[in-house]
Design a protein around this nucleic acid. Sequence first.
DNA 1: GTTCTCTTACTCGGATAGAAACTGTCCGAGTTGTCTGGG
DNA 2: CCCAGACAACTCGGACAGTTTCTATCCGAGTAAGAGAAC
Lengths: 156, 156
Amino acid sequence: MGEGVEWGLHCCVTLGWLHAEAPVPTRRLAAWFDLPQEYLKKRLQALGRAGILASSPGARGGWSLARPPERITMMEVVAALEDGLDAFTCTEVRRRGAGARGGGPELGGTCGVAALMRRAEMAWRRELAAHTIADLMAQSPESAARTHRNYRHLTG
Amino acid sequence: MGEGVEWGLHCCVTLGWLHAEAPVPTRRLAAWFDLPQEYLKKRLQALGRAGILASSPGARGGWSLARPPERITMMEVVAALEDGLDAFTCTEVRRRGAGARGGGPELGGTCGVAALMRRAEMAWRRELAAHTIADLMAQSPESAARTHRNYRHLTG
DNA sequence: GTTCTCTTACTCGGATAGAAACTGTCCGAGTTGTCTGGG
DNA sequence: CCCAGACAACTCGGACAGTTTCTATCCGAGTAAGAGAAC
């Protein structure tokens, strides 16, 4: 899983806290977490395409949450930042080679291995879909307060 | 997730079915699924180091299950074949950059983002740990029968 | 004072390069069953 | 018939490329706010 997922989640949380100061330009978010600005931009663009962040072009533009944080699940953020969502991909190995010779009708159905792997990934998704950016925001009020404090004094 | 995980699971299931013919050499398993023999060998060696498969050196040697299939969980197989088990890795972005200036005590605790991501991965692991190679073997008796039939006639 | 234009500060998308992980191949060394030849 | 030695069939581990994915940077184009000039 790419590092951009961590960045994206933290950015969403921060944008939730900084709702009053939106939009926040990429440069500031990069300085905020000490991240490479150009690459962070690419990941934020992906969140924009997914309808999670909204971009304001032009001077004084930047990024803001496209929806209230209670309506953005962690699953959506992860899905937007990860290309191949499924960690496991079934290549239908069971249908190839000498083992499949004279294959019976069960080869037409879904692969049992893939089915159980999929089931596990569904459990993972369910867990991620059950929590929102608002949950993350609520976890550390101290960080929220410091964010407001620091952002006002942020130069550049 | 690497392709070797799929190979490993299918090989374990097949070795379960071919218990009577064990040990099965890498060459046969590779031909069985039409896989690159040398690379498959590497993955099987990993399963051997993890104590999932047992290797018999020498002529007429090969691989067999190190334990009865009811006692090999899918989780173990995946863990043995995947280096970095955790898909998500927390790099503690929250402690870096301008956003962390004057950091409060909550920065000492665990990261909320990482905690929820971890929770999701635990759900995934739980699901994988709940199913064994025996479960996979039981899913398709037709394949089991064909495996026995084909293996007898397998030349080379 | 209003409007027009110019500059500035942003985002968007594509192109590109480097780093890391995954995939695949090759080789030398060790182990064991089988075959062969001598006793 | 029995035993020693050669041979063949395996695994083990390391070294080494090729390929894909992730990370990172750069550039040109488009958009909006604000400043300044013209009317």
